[in-house]
Nucleic acid binder design. Structure first.
Lengths: 415, 415
DNA sequence: CTCTATTTTTTCGAGCCTCGAAAAAACACT
DNA sequence: AGTGTTTTTTCGAGGCTCGAAAAAATAGAG
């Protein structure tokens, strides 16, 4: 049973709405905010004067008023960069990357580090993460007290509550409650997010025109991941981060997948699968641990050059992705797709077979209208997504705090 | 951009919440309502006295107070049956069924009719629906003015706005805007719903313990349909009623499906597919138009009796459903499943292969814990779902009306 | 340079809504 | 009949949003 709205929730929600409007629009005037939120000018005036006096928003210089019109000029409201800061931690294969971001979204400090994630012990892995966070917090440019939130992202499966990594291809370790660990260590609230979900969040901020209410971000990397936004909300599983597109079944009893099962989409479209097929190692051969981006680019170059096993490998990848998307589209109806990751750079090799396969499916009824976009570089996207996720948390839970302890599932998963 | 909350929305939402609490609980006291909604006693008192004076709620007789306790006895609040009425229209293969239901959910008038939906013209089909609705409205027991909503359900695909049937297996006709037609004819707001979605809605009301926030209703009938509830909300596609589980791809280029494509789950698990396999007609043979329930029951009996093509047909159905569910579970995580329809009565023949298949998939990691329930009779379920859908519409949109014309997507799809 | 038209923002009182505390109501038990 | 207990209503206080009007800030006209 959902819960009633109490009188004190009103102001809280409208505060959150004003902050969200400012984050989305950049430097809107009060009048613009009133228009987008549907609230009256008086209300916006009251709320924004509160927010300004609390140091959350700041009025823009009158000089930047933009186009000069008749009448009293609008004064733009912006996020005060010093209101808070957040931290992003992205853990990917052999690579750890951290950034501190101010409240307005600008990076103010960062650090990156190569690791050997596949062979590290549990303690070493946790230790590296804690150490790199500590170093950034000790940066003299940073006011530790202003850091209000840490968002981690990792490839693999995380739990619904965004507390722990349950399983990840980048390490043999399982069930590490990174969020709890960092919270205990630094006393800063933290969440553990799935990398593809963060890609989706970032795409939504980068290009709200194209990626608005319904879209799909697919990571074409060593493994195949997906971030899905439906009806404006990030879609997550009921128990885990969900959306394991790569492990939908393409062919029952088919090629051996890294997950140990057979016939998953990933077993045809993951880097290791393309590699395996290109080298004609057979579908039962053990997936190799890692194929470098350079090797994949070389493979794609060969495939473009001549018709051979390389080209066939990409064709098979396209077929698997196409049937998988077809099945997905049967469930959710077609939506724009962003292909991200190193193999997205080879999408020209993948697309024909993909489109052919999708046209064979119920979801492909309007296959011509399904559009694909590519972005070879996933890391910046994941980082941006983490930043936005952490910042919107601050917007809503810290700067518009309310009756959290109440019953019901208040924490909607807004992308 | 989401929209702010205005002051007048407050009362409206809390009114809706109180009505919903009463519908859910049956005859709750004001104190119970205060507890479930989280609102104060004073607020509940004020709202319920409004609702009573408007004739929406009614106080129960003090006699039915139930267990006698010390202190002032609770007075139960119930829905006033005469506050309104709704109508359900269920259109299924060769069968049309209509019922009028009072505000408390009791059937007050009904009518059923055999038709030959597969051969009827568009005009005849629409005409029959309009005529049967008119007859029920002319029933002397019914006060026409009290009928506040009509909910239609049909097998097949409906549009997102619940206005039209886009495609249905029960008729060659397509794109009939039943909701608009009935609204124009009778001036009563109507919606066109997908049958499996209504099954899911009904299950939620029938057994809220089991079917709460996440579950799946699968119709095993001539075709395969699905109603899906995720995070407490009925899941619909972005453009259509969505959830075309039966047309996920089981085997690329596999058996011929009724939809004209190949390898869909339905092409292995629909009645016609089981029939085709049992009769060894070959996977490319044209799907028969209809197999009677009696024929299916006979088939199941034979399959139980001896190991032969009949048993193998059910095994193949189980395999297709299992891999399909496995792929679905990869996306949404495992959830309780209700198998509905005539082949649900043969679930004993289906289950072993289904479980074996699902165990091969990522979604089947905890396959032992995935539980299935069966309900051979889909019609009553669909009817109930329609009734609840129509009644909750009345609850929310008519008895707690508000600033509808505002921007943003107010109409959440609560199951 | 002053005045007017225009647009944005703030101010102010009115009207609701919810809440907590206290009172009233309605019964069981002694 | 009196006491204790639980439910329901009443009442004043405090907040919030809204509309209308006022104030502020500027461009353009004369």
């Amino acid at each position: 049973m959902s819960v009633g709205i109490r009188h004190d929730d009103l102001r809280r929600r409208n505060r959150a709405m004003v902050i969200a409007a400012v984050r989305l629009a950049g430097r809107p005037s009060r009048t613009e905010i009133a228009a987008t939120t549907g609230l009256s000018h008086s209300t916006i005036s009251a709320i924004s004067s509160d927010l300004i006096s609390e140091g959350i928003l700041a009025e823009g210089k009158p000089s930047e008023a933009g186009a000069l019109k008749r009448g009293r000029p609008q004064v733009g409201l912006g996020l005060n960069p010093e209101a808070a800061a957040v931290m992003t931690v992205v853990l990917s294969l052999n690579f750890l990357s951290v950034a501190v971001i101010d409240y307005a979204g600008q990076v103010i400090s960062e650090e990156q580090r190569r690791l050997d994630t596949l062979t590290m012990s549990r303690e070493a892995l946790i230790g590296e993460c804690v150490a790199i966070v500590r170093r950034r917090l000790e940066d003299p440019d940073i006011d530790v007290r202003s850091v209000a939130r840490i968002a981690l992202a990792i490839q693999g499966i995380t739990d619904t509550d965004a507390r722990a990594m349950l399983w990840s291809p980048i390490t043999p370790q399982t069930d590490i409650a990174f969020a709890d660990i960092l919270e205990a260590e630094f006393g800063i609230p933290a969440t553990m997010e799935n990398d593809c979900n963060m890609m989706a969040v970032a795409l939504r901020w980068r290009d709200p025109e194209r990626y608005r209410d319904d879209f799909i971000a697919i990571l074409l990397s060593h493994g195949i991941g997906m971030g899905l936004v439906l009806k404006g909300e990030l879609f997550t599983g009921t128990h885990s981060s969900g959306g394991e597109f790569g492990h939908m079944i393409h062919r029952p009893n088919g090629a051996l997948c890294r997950c140990g099962r057979r016939g998953c989409v990933e077993a045809y479209a993951g880097n290791y699968a393309i590699w395996r097929n290109a080298k004609q190692l057979g579908e039962d051969s053990e997936p190799v641990a890692d194929v470098s981006d350079a090797q994949m680019r070389a493979l794609a170059a060969t495939a473009r050059e001549r018709d051979g096993p390389e080209r066939e490998a990409y064709r098979k990848a396209g077929e698997a992705l196409g049937y998988g998307l077809g099945s997905l589209f049967a469930l959710i109806d077609p939506a724009p797709v962003a292909m991200v990751g190193v193999s997205a750079a080879a999408f020209d090799l993948i697309e024909p077979a993909l489109r052919e396969a999708i046209a064979q499916t119920a979801g492909g009824q309007h296959s011509k209208s399904i559009s694909f976009d590519t972005e070879p570089n996933e890391l910046p996207l994941i980082r941006e997504g983490c930043a936005m996720r952490a910042l919107t948390f601050v917007d809503q839970e810290i700067f518009a705090p309310g009756a959290q302890a109440r019953a019901g599932g208040a924490g909607k998963n807004v992308a």
